[in-house]
Design a protein around this nucleic acid. Structure first.
Length: 111
DNA sequence: CAGATGACCGCAG
DNA sequence: TCTGCGGCCATCT
């Protein structure tokens, strides 16, 4: 509790703030991609920043960052728990271990 | 300004 | 499925 400078690369607050809002709006049983979020932010080519932002997201925010996958329907490398979390929400995987984006891809149009 | 990094994207073999 | 390549953008050193 001395300092909260846990941020290593602290990207723009407005950027991560937008990401948080979007990810937090993802309903259960649905997933979204980094490119989608980046596009909603007005920067479809800035998908990398989205991933970096999610990485620095504290779990205290209760963000379902596990519902965010890449455009290939693949999950986060090194995070095996993500698959279990999605399974618990009713998300099915292909035999390859990828999410069926054609079914679970969520569009930010509910708000 | 230049170089390095990253939970990306798409293509090719 | 995996690996390599180049490209994109933001941030750090």
């Amino acid at each position: 509790m001395r300092d909260y400078k846990v941020n290593k690369e602290a990207i723009s607050e407005s950027f991560c703030a937008e990401v948080y809002e979007i990810v937090r709006s993802v309903p259960v049983g649905r997933v979204t991609t980094y490119g989608e979020i980046a596009a909603l932010l007005g920067k479809p080519q800035c998908s990398r920043m989205v991933g970096k932002a999610l990485k620095q997201v504290p779990m205290e925010l209760d963000l379902p960052c596990h519902r965010v996958v890449n455009a290939q329907g693949r999950l986060v490398p090194g995070w095996e728990e993500q698959r279990e979390l999605l399974l618990s929400e009713g998300v099915r995987f292909k035999k390859s271990g990828c999410v069926d984006l054609s079914v679970y891809r969520w569009k930010f149009d509910s708000l």
